[in-house]
Amino acid sequence: MRTLTPRRIQETLFTAPSFLWLLVLFLVPTLMVVSMSFRTADPYGGIGDSFSLEGFKDIFSPSFPGILFRTVNLSFQTTLWCLALGLPVAYFIARAEKKHQAHLMLLIIIPFWTNFLIRVYAWKIILHPEGMLKDMLVALRLVSEDTSLLYNQGAVLLVLVYTYLPFAVLPLYAAIEKFDFTLIEASRDLGAGPLRSFFRVFLPGISQGIVSAVMVVFIPALGSYVIPDMVGGTDGEMLGNKIAQRVFVDRNLPRGSALSTLLVLAVVLPVIGGLVVKKIRSNGRAFADVPSIGEHGL
């Protein structure tokens, strides 16, 4: 039996507010959505009392794999681009002189002061078929007069990357800023080439930052709804748009909830999996007296 030591009581008290927060604002609503997905729907937007798996029939419809693939694919590509663009930016800021770092970070944060919708509208103006960018590309013979820069998956990807890039830069910057660059020197002294140092020393060193960046980009990107709605065309429908259609047009909350449940599972399961793996590993490590050299990244 576990006794409640003063230390444990203190711990419980300290974690109670955040635990309550998560319980009330995350766990309870999520469970409500999940339970709603197992109910019947009436044609007027109401929810029946009986249990039904009808809500999940979207998953077996022939059009579902396409939407799912598009959603995951676009989110995945967004994450890759955000990492590819965010890493050099974060590196540059973290390596800049201390007095400039705050200013550079400000440049990353300033766009947040503008409303998200207005920023998406700005992209609609930039990519407008009668706009300056289009005229310039036509003049340079890079695109033809008939090419549309808007309303295709490329436009969705572009605006997704634009929107989530700052979210990727922040954790990457935090990780790189803490990274001990003498480790790179050490690896070079020990004979590693620049590429090898980068992949074997630098990337593992900032892995926590990369994981956070992936999480804050990939997860919200999966649920994108406004961006594909505004700059996407007839082929850009994502899971978020389908959920919106089920709720607002079809007045079928169970089917919308079932898709949302799927989205939640898609996000939560990998996280739980990651935690389990971590737990098993740390348990295994408890038996090893001496940490292996490999853990230091060499």
Partner: peptide
């Protein structure tokens, strides 16, 4: 159309998914 709305939803899903 009451229950008949589901028919339209289904057609609409197919239109949206068509390439």
């Amino acid at each position: 159309l009451g229950e008949g709305n589901a028919l339209y939803s289904e057609i609409w899903d197919q239109v949206k998914a068509a390439r």
